[in-house]
Design a protein around this nucleic acid. Sequence first.
DNA 1: TATGAATGAGGATTCATTCAT
DNA 2: GATGAATGAATCCTCATTCAT
Lengths: 198, 198, 198, 198
Amino acid sequence: MRIKEGNKEEDIIKAATRVFADAGFHNARMSRIADVAEVSNGSLYVYYKNKEEILMKILEGFWKELYDRTLELTNRDDITNAEKFDFMMDMLFDTFAENPDSAIIIANEQKHFQHRRQENLTSYFDKFIDLGERIVAEGVEKDMFNKNIDASLLRIFLLGGISELILEWAMNKSKISLNDIRSTVKFTVKHGILKNGK
Amino acid sequence: MRIKEGNKEEDIIKAATRVFADAGFHNARMSRIADVAEVSNGSLYVYYKNKEEILMKILEGFWKELYDRTLELTNRDDITNAEKFDFMMDMLFDTFAENPDSAIIIANEQKHFQHRRQENLTSYFDKFIDLGERIVAEGVEKDMFNKNIDASLLRIFLLGGISELILEWAMNKSKISLNDIRSTVKFTVKHGILKNGK
Amino acid sequence: MRIKEGNKEEDIIKAATRVFADAGFHNARMSRIADVAEVSNGSLYVYYKNKEEILMKILEGFWKELYDRTLELTNRDDITNAEKFDFMMDMLFDTFAENPDSAIIIANEQKHFQHRRQENLTSYFDKFIDLGERIVAEGVEKDMFNKNIDASLLRIFLLGGISELILEWAMNKSKISLNDIRSTVKFTVKHGILKNGK
Amino acid sequence: MRIKEGNKEEDIIKAATRVFADAGFHNARMSRIADVAEVSNGSLYVYYKNKEEILMKILEGFWKELYDRTLELTNRDDITNAEKFDFMMDMLFDTFAENPDSAIIIANEQKHFQHRRQENLTSYFDKFIDLGERIVAEGVEKDMFNKNIDASLLRIFLLGGISELILEWAMNKSKISLNDIRSTVKFTVKHGILKNGK
DNA sequence: TATGAATGAGGATTCATTCAT
DNA sequence: GATGAATGAATCCTCATTCAT
């Protein structure tokens, strides 16, 4: 068995993450990924079926990390749903912040592949979404959140808004402070833009 | 030779809108657009420089329509900024609702041209954005909106969230009511999710 | 419309016939065919779906020519079935002789693609085969041919033997005389190798 | 490490025979052969130089078996050449019948190595051919076979015809009786199709 | 303007073969 | 000998774009 120095499987994912973030999925070249990963073209296909599978692994990897970080939170009963919500948003921002390339990929490419995500019912993205929806729904039930909030619509809205902000931040790090973004989002979502909630 | 009765230039845009919405920009075939437009392949290039230009025209067309609808509003001084904001959101939703294919394209592909758009002041997208930011900024100045709202971040957030919702709606019309979406968004953004805005 | 000088569709078939005969289907390169046909790579795919379709057209073209040449013969009633048989063999040899490259291709490649020839029920190869079987079967009925001859087996045997001979001839023209081949085959099939048919 | 109990060298040949027969030489995958042989990819190359050499060994193995079975016959002087010819045909059919996968490979792929075989006198195929040609040539000399029979052409014809029939039989065992094939071939070759050999 | 046949650069993928262990 | 991860050359095909008419 030849040496498997440095875990090629992981190297490829890392390389692909950088390349996809830079060029976008469609303009990214497999040969470029192989170069960056310091691996032969053929090795890409030892570990992954094709280009799309590499993208999927990147996306799933991100959502799995986020899901794992968030999971234990939801079962706690010593904190309010508002606190849980806050915490979840923090996790989301933190994980994006730590993985700016993944953030870019998610903002740019995830939608295109959402459609065929029918077999993916075990997907960590879906699991994370569920977690979020449950926290909001419970908050509504417990009369902590406004009744006319639809948890399912809210999560689409939030995710869309945040990933757009994160994209802007990731493409443009110098100009935008992630903390400004985070506090703007959290404040707005919790209190609204109208002064005195009015 | 086909007599130019049906305005090819427009036919192409209409066809491309349908094709891009269906297949996504990268998977859309120029020949398919030509087919749908009932025009030859070559004619596409009589009216447009290339595939990307067609996409740009579609996007600009959408934003121009929206901008035109919204412009006069901003100069009025008989309504509050909160009312202006409300109105602007309504326009946005209405225009999306009337152009679901464009909505899909915007949600999926707007980024493509965001990148090369660098403060292009002739762009109707930028003009529309300016309008929105000004309404919010003024609202803050007039002490009607919360001070810690950053207008520029808010618009990215809002646009991202709304386009994600609209995409969901456009891909899935039967299941989601556009009015539910609209009222959820408006309420959340104005009042926040916390009961009593607290 | 750009000039279509020299009928590219046909040029491609001619070039492919030469290239397939030289290198074999699997080792033949599409780019080589394009070169020989003095056509761009892309043009190959304007006229044919893929490499395999080009091969099929070559094979069908050959059998169509042979079938057309042989068809009228079968309906004549002024000649015996032995004469018809003779004539058919001559046509087969002549057509092979006039198309040595096709002969090589048929000998080398036809078998590989016979299997998926299920939809091809209108195939000229099958039609030609039918013609031959009918002549033999009738000969048997009319008591002109030996009763224990199975027409269906005979045609497989004959075609296999002849195409092998033709291949040898086509690969090796200087050494073997086509007329020797033809008379050997005809004599053997009609009279057998045993002297006095005994 | 697998203990070398099952003779890998032979296992590989057996596996390759099945795989080549199923898929054809060009579509057969080395990794599939390794799978079927229950051997690693690398082991294939411990025993054989490359894919083609495996094919050659299969073909040679077949012809060697046939040659060995036929050799002693030719030196006998207590039987006529017609009987020898008959016997040789029987051996050919029997050996094909016992090795249907080899039969398929021979019918489909023998040409691959025919080309590079240039009077390779160590080849069992050539030795077998020589045997056959000698029997026929002697038969002609002894005035037992018709004078105008060219032994060399006859063997090409026979082998081509028979391998085609055998292929049909091997691919389609249920429908065709090998004995029918054999007697049709033997009768035709010896007596011809014309009644009374006339 | 309008056409659509022609182009050809470009890239994902395959798979026989190698070689360090 | 045995392994199987690693290799990378090699090629079919796609499709946006062009251009002679």
